[in-house]
Design a protein around this nucleic acid. Sequence first.
DNA 1: ACCTGAACACCGTTCAAGT
DNA 2: ACCTGAACACCGTTCAAGT
Lengths: 179, 179
Amino acid sequence: MRADAVRTRKQLLDAAAELFAEGGAEVSVAEIAERAGIGKGTVFRHFATKEDLIAAIVGDLLDDLVDAAEKRGSLREFMVYGVGRLADNRALCDVASGSVRHPDVQAGVERLNEAAQRLVDRAETREGVTGRDVVLLMTGVHQAAAPLRDAEPELWRRYLGFLLDGLLDTGSSAPHSRT
Amino acid sequence: MRADAVRTRKQLLDAAAELFAEGGAEVSVAEIAERAGIGKGTVFRHFATKEDLIAAIVGDLLDDLVDAAEKRGSLREFMVYGVGRLADNRALCDVASGSVRHPDVQAGVERLNEAAQRLVDRAETREGVTGRDVVLLMTGVHQAAAPLRDAEPELWRRYLGFLLDGLLDTGSSAPHSRT
DNA sequence: ACCTGAACACCGTTCAAGT
DNA sequence: ACCTGAACACCGTTCAAGT
């Protein structure tokens, strides 16, 4: 790849990362090209489709979450971190809502599921809970709180608390029995 | 309104209800017009924007949920019914995901929140839980399970179970304490 | 009064023409 | 090799022309 192309590509990725984070996948290719200071057609020289561009940006975000799963001590800490990331990046929300179905993204989610599974293995959860459950439920918590994102930006913490109380096995008492 | 216009409007609403239920808000006006057997322009004679048409369809769905909240005995039953409706109607999902922001829809959600509040008042939940929380959390449960809608269509029941265990106050033991 | 389809401004995508 | 903007097929929306 020629030096000028490397530079163009970086400008494109920087602009896309910023705009997708703020506005989600719905920001137009024209806007991204303008912000990057390049022609609209050039975007498609680097990425065959808009979806491919989104997948490249979102892939990095998912890798960051996998790192977090490996570095954070507990399942609880990971879930707090993960929902927090969902709350501040609209592109990640679009992945969570299933509107991005790119194979690279699916692979990234799969790696995240596996990393979450390793945390579940070391945690005291109710029986049958998998890493995949944890990842899906994180997105559910975020999306429940999302409509009030502006009015109550910390609402997801409360909802995550409810979920964790249903998910974690506290050991001492019998939290999941119904009288 | 002239008799032929009444007929046209009904054809339009029937087609829209069916297609939105299957495909969500993203089905095109052209598709709806074709299914209804009317011209594309005629759609905009009855509804100023596509959003207004969606709001009309979704309003009925929300009214049905309000009815359910009033007729179902318990909070738990209502939540099972509500998430079930979300699972089989894509238009309702689009409301839940916040991609429909029509004032009539917001008003419908508000009425649903109030109906849910009346169920909460009669239920044993943890402190501070509101009807609005219940409605939001129902959408969260659904959206968590949505990516596996085809592979595991009943997954939402399991996730709703997790949530209810965190939400309901079982009385006897101390389910929300952490040791 | 009511319906229609051609026309408009957008979108993602393609590609001939430029460097 | 790489970049560009005009051109294309879509979309929601408008409106002059028809009944």
